[in-house]
């Protein structure tokens, strides 16, 4: 079986999946990003403990507030979106009809928690 797509890249980029697609793609980007981050962070901490300078350099990047604000966006979104997916999947009969409302609610919760966290990070920098 070979990979066969029926749309061009330009068409794919113009795909208007709206809210559900945005959450789908952000969940994936966040998931892959976290996998890379955690892998590197664990390995950096491990080698840092053994006196390797490279581990210290990598972890210094992770301590940077700007990096933490970007990372927190993807981590929090993945966590909150994952909760929505799990709840809809576990109670499909009752909840799946409200999936668009669930996405709106998810954004409200995400913006409130993320906004508060960003203010907190910026506040600790000042």
């Amino acid at each position: 079986m070979s990979l066969k797509r029926d749309v061009s890249l330009s068409t794919a980029l113009r795909y208007k999946g709206q809210g559900p697609f945005l959450t789908f793609i952000l969940h994936r980007i966040g998931g892959i990003g976290m996998a890379l981050f955690i892998t590197l962070h664990v390995l950096a901490s491990f080698v840092e403990g053994r006196g390797w300078k490279i581990g210290d350099v990598i972890n210094d990047i992770y301590i940077n507030p700007v990096f933490q604000i970007v990372l927190l966006f993807f981590v929090l979104f993945h966590v909150i979106n994952g909760l929505r997916i799990t709840m809809l999947d576990l109670f499909p009969t009752r909840l799946i009809q409200y999936h668009r409302q669930a996405i709106k609610l998810e954004w409200v919760v995400f913006i409130a928690i993320y906004g508060f966290a960003v203010i907190s990070i910026i506040g600790s920098m000042l």
Partner: peptide
Amino acid sequence: MNFADILRWAL
């Protein structure tokens, strides 16, 4: 303790 530190610990 600020909220960002709580989240960092919780995660």
